[in-house]
Amino acid sequence: MIQGGRSGVGRYVIALSETLIKRGLELHLAGLDADRSHFPMIPDEHWVSIPASFDSGAKNLLWHQASLPGIIRHNGYDVVHIPSYRRMVINCPAPQVATIHDCAPFIMAEKYDALRGFFGRKVVPWIARRMDRVIAVSATAGKDIQHYLGVTPERLTLIPNGIDHARFQPASENALADFRTRRALTKPYLIYIARFEHPAKNHVRLIEAFGRFREESGLDWQLVLGGAPWHGKEVIDEAWQSSTHRDAIRMEGFVEDDELALWYGAAEALVFPSLMEGFGFPVIEAQACGTLAVSSNATSLAEVNGPAALPFDPTSVDSITAALHQLGQMDTAERTRRIAQGIEWAAQYRWEKHAEQCEQVYREVAGG
């Protein structure tokens, strides 16, 4: 589930692993050797190597059901934590905790092919109800887990995600100026960080709304789209090529972690039109960097956005455009107020707090 650290689940596992080890827990981690470099904190003797021949979805699922239980039994683990509903173990010989980030197969049926959709909608609820505990990363996700998966409240624990505040914090003006020069960012820009996935990440509506905003406002702003290619990228590419404002839209591709905070910090705002999120890391990360957020109010984003963000209906191009106009017309005083409010809001989301609460869950399911 690490996917080179390019997925939300991957980032979750990396951050949680680092923080749990800092807390003194003995953590063993199962992963593909291709992702080993993301876990320098894991000693070799605590690394459980998943064979490369089991890297694909169906084969990887099979490894978790057929091979992992024997490894768990042999090593005598106290607790097993599965960080995604896709890999929960049906017959786990140790207490099992699962983090379920969202209920996407139920909310966005078109997101998956028929086989994955069937697995998510029919098989996952049955497995989820067998968990000793399920962790939800937002209140919205928790409600969905109860509604769609049938997990009872006593088996569900809400533990919001965190972010790395050592990385995501306001940068100096000199650092931002150097970054703009290095990346040839000569005009004010909006940034959207999400994998290029259609329709879930909603790039097509954003591209249309951005074009309208430029025409109606007269502001010579750019739009930077950063993310890894995913299902439906060709539809997004077509929308970009068809836009009369394509020269103002920069298809940046995947943004490396060491520059992500600078991409946020140098932007006029993060614009985040996603149709469905279990949490929505970029909204919190951007605000922690002192950047305004203009964000979808769908699913968990309505709670994660906080009071400083400018919300919009992601299914309406008119609504997205109106929010961009509100941003473009914002005076300095309001901008300063919202930035400070956003930094304060983001400060509550800490991996240390998340790991502490996860550890408490582990102790509860393992009998203390």
Rank of each mutant, 00 (worst) to 15 (best):
F196D: 01
N91F: 13
D33K: 12
Q241R: 15
L260Q: 06
F210I: 05
F210E: 05
I320Y: 00
V294L: 04
E303Y: 05
A288S: 14
A293H: 05
A261L: 02
M251V: 14
G306Q: 00
K59H: 08
Q65P: 03
S172A: 08
P69F: 06
A15H: 10
E197F: 07
A266W: 09
C358W: 00
S17A: 15
L115G: 05
A139C: 07
F119V: 10
P314K: 01
G280E: 01
P188I: 09
R335M: 05
K122E: 13
V317A: 03
K353V: 12
T299Q: 09
A286F: 03
G117W: 05
Y362C: 00
A194D: 07
R363D: 08
E256Y: 07
L270G: 00
A288K: 07
M108Q: 13
H231M: 09
L275T: 08
D318E: 13
A66S: 09
L219N: 10
W126I: 14
P93R: 14
H165R: 13
A141Q: 04
P93F: 11
E352K: 03
I191R: 09
T19F: 03
E356K: 11
D44N: 13
R129A: 00
D44Y: 03
A340S: 15
I236K: 10
N174T: 11
M330R: 05
W47E: 01
R133S: 14
L185N: 06
P93I: 08
Q348T: 03
G280Y: 00
L185T: 04
P282D: 06
F281T: 00
V255L: 14
A288N: 05
Q222H: 14
Q169V: 10
F168H: 02
R182S: 14
F254M: 04
K233I: 14
C289N: 04
F272A: 00
G227D: 07
P43F: 10
S49F: 07
L16R: 12
F119E: 08
S242D: 13
T321V: 04
V317Y: 00
E215T: 11
A248P: 04
G10L: 15
I50E: 09
N60V: 00
A114G: 05
E259Y: 06
P69I: 08
F118Y: 12
G142C: 02
A15C: 14
K201R: 15
L62M: 14
L156F: 06
D33R: 11
V124W: 00
V204G: 06
I135W: 03
K59S: 13
R11I: 08
L62A: 13
V255M: 06
H101F: 12
L223Y: 10
Q326A: 11
K143D: 12
G290H: 13
G8A: 08
A309H: 13
E252V: 03
R363Q: 15
I100H: 06
L270E: 01
M88C: 08
L327E: 03
P40H: 10
I339D: 07
D258N: 15
L25K: 08
Q3H: 14
A104D: 02
D318N: 12
R23P: 02
V97G: 02
V134N: 05
T315D: 12
R155F: 01
I14D: 06
L185Y: 07
L225C: 11
L115H: 09
L16M: 15
V97A: 01
G290P: 05
